[in-house]
Computed example of a mutant assay.
Amino acid sequence: MEHDHSGHMHHAMASEAAPAHHHHEDGDGCSSMHAMVFHAGVCQEILFSGWMTTTALELFGSAVAIFLAGILYEGLKYYREALHARATSLRGDSQVNITKNECGANGACGGPALVKYSMMSCSHFVQTLLHVVQSTASYLLMLVFMTYNVWLCVALILGLAVGYFCFGWRKNSVVDVTEHCQ
Rank of each mutant, 00 (worst) to 15 (best):
H3N: 12
S6F: 13
G7F: 11
H8V: 08
M9G: 06
H10K: 15
H11P: 06
A12R: 13
A17M: 13
A18V: 05
P19N: 05
H21W: 11
H22M: 09
E25W: 07
D26L: 05
G27A: 09
D28M: 10
D28W: 07
C30S: 00
S32Q: 14
S32N: 04
S32I: 14
H34M: 14
M36W: 11
F38H: 07
H39Y: 00
A40Y: 07
V42N: 07
V42L: 07
Q44T: 08
E45S: 06
I46N: 02
L47W: 00
S49T: 13
G50P: 11
G50H: 08
W51R: 13
W51N: 10
W51E: 07
T53Y: 03
L57I: 14
L59Q: 06
F60G: 07
G61E: 01
S62Q: 07
A63P: 02
A63W: 05
V64G: 05
I66G: 03
L68N: 02
L68P: 04
G70D: 03
L72Y: 02
Y73W: 07
G75W: 00
G75P: 00
L76G: 00
K77H: 09
Y78V: 02
Y78C: 01
Y79N: 04
Y79W: 11
R80P: 04
A82S: 11
H84A: 00
R86P: 00
T88P: 02
T88S: 05
T88D: 03
L90P: 11
R91G: 08
R91E: 12
R91P: 07
D93N: 13
D93C: 08
V96Q: 09
V96E: 05
N97I: 11
T99I: 09
K100A: 11
K100D: 10
K100T: 12
N101I: 08
N101L: 13
C103S: 15
N106F: 12
A108L: 15
C109Q: 10
G111C: 02
G111H: 09
P112R: 09
A113C: 08
L114K: 12
L114T: 11
S118L: 06
S118C: 08
M119F: 13
M119G: 13
H124M: 14
H124R: 11
H124T: 13
F125R: 09
Q127L: 12
Q127N: 10
L129D: 00
V133F: 08
Q134E: 14
T136S: 15
T136Q: 10
L140C: 12
L143K: 15
L143M: 13
V144R: 06
T147S: 14
N149G: 01
N149Y: 04
W151I: 10
C153E: 04
G159S: 03
G159N: 06
L160S: 03
A161T: 05
V162T: 03
Y164W: 14
F165R: 08
C166I: 14
C166Q: 09
R170F: 07
R170W: 06
K171V: 02
S173T: 15
V175D: 01
V177R: 01
V177I: 13
T178S: 09
T178E: 04
T178Q: 04
E179F: 00
H180N: 13
